[in-house]
Design a protein around this nucleic acid. Sequence first.
DNA 1: ACGAGTAAGACTCAATCTGAGAAGAACATA
DNA 2: TATGTTCTTCTCAGATTGAGTCTTACTCGT
Lengths: 249, 249
Amino acid sequence: MDEASYLAGYDPGRYPSIAVTVDVVALTIRDGRLCVLLVERGAPPFAGQRALPGGFVKAETLDEAALRELGEETGLKPGEGELARVHLEQLRSYGDPGRDPRMRIVSVAYLAFAPSLPDPTAGSDAAGAYWVPVDEAVGLAFDHDAVLADGLERARSKLEYTPLATAFTAPEFTIGDLRQVYAAVWGEDLHAGNFHRKVLSVPGFVESTGETSARGGERGGPKARLYRAGDAKLLHPALLRPDREDRVR
Amino acid sequence: MDEASYLAGYDPGRYPSIAVTVDVVALTIRDGRLCVLLVERGAPPFAGQRALPGGFVKAETLDEAALRELGEETGLKPGEGELARVHLEQLRSYGDPGRDPRMRIVSVAYLAFAPSLPDPTAGSDAAGAYWVPVDEAVGLAFDHDAVLADGLERARSKLEYTPLATAFTAPEFTIGDLRQVYAAVWGEDLHAGNFHRKVLSVPGFVESTGETSARGGERGGPKARLYRAGDAKLLHPALLRPDREDRVR
DNA sequence: ACGAGTAAGACTCAATCTGAGAAGAACATA
DNA sequence: TATGTTCTTCTCAGATTGAGTCTTACTCGT
């Protein structure tokens, strides 16, 4: 039976109603570490614990709901500069009965990649939200540990096949900046020479601005050339993570 | 504001309620063609058009709801032989206001890979459901054209990185069987010799049974060795689709 | 101003992987 | 039996990979 014929004979009181929310796994890189946006819970259940930002879906698309929630938590306004550069994509939905002790909730989780954003504590609504290094983000409320883990795996995988690493950088960046994004998200260092060769050999990944950085690295080294994101939507060939036996089986 | 603190002050009548359904993109291979399970709609809206099977989520997990719907449409029982071999994974959710003209519905779409299943018309509930080659599955009800397209892209991509092609075959299969799965899903022929070399070189993809097929191919050729699915969860290295420029940008 | 340390970028090299093709043997059908 | 198909293995040239070296340019601390 398909959903629509089902609906035609649907008695609204027949099944317990299900609430729909969005939760956002918002990632950024601060001080070379991958961080996630968390909020502190005031009320039970899980009072005092941290959780992913989220809320009810209103009369809007799911994407709009996720962007709105992200804006409310960071104190930034959708459409204005910084939020406009955020990459937002749907992650997956979580709907186990009992994942919220009060009622049946289906949550559509989103994944956001953001360049380094200001501390959200500046705004008013955003008090109680802050960036936490992902390896310290454990013991979250609800099933948010699992949601975060799924988001991280998606992010790590996306860096292999898409140019989305540039969503974590400033509009103009050096190859070294890009390499540090990969290192932070993947949690392992990369061979600088091979990374450089690879990035420049993938068509449409980056395009040169012709400029170089104003000064060299903080600890020395020559000025580096600056690049912008190219027009590729997929990396061909892909930039694969170093082989790790434990990912295979 | 996170979902739970929102809930604490939630007025149930404040927002229009949202119904939650599951829809299933069930794929199988018949006569060398990739097919999707569709149902014929009897009642408006979209009466007479075809749609993906689906229905309301009851007091069950989303996965259970999807498996239940698939069983109802195919006339097969979950847990019994054939349905137990079906691979089922969540695809993504669709929740645009207006995607169903009657009310706000968020649908969690699932993707199913099945070995060749019997025609569902045998069962009673399953009347009106049938397998349709994917290139003939156009003009579906609701936003199901887009859901199907997303499912197909996911399936094509999954074949690259996972051993899920074996979910389309019998428990024992030849390398040629496997190659035909790839050819059907990707829509392009593969070099038999290179495919053979590649499949056997990926650790854990397939394991030999020691047996060979009872007879050669229908149009000639020697008996082929039989294999089972191995224990790998990911293919390393991956079996990539032939380069196609149009996928890149 | 100078020396030590760091990083960008270009290069080398051997090992591996890839796509394309060829060949032999086994098997089907007409 | 003749013809065509398929399985399986092999070859080979070209591309890609990981690891390392080298030069040059720069920052920082002294």
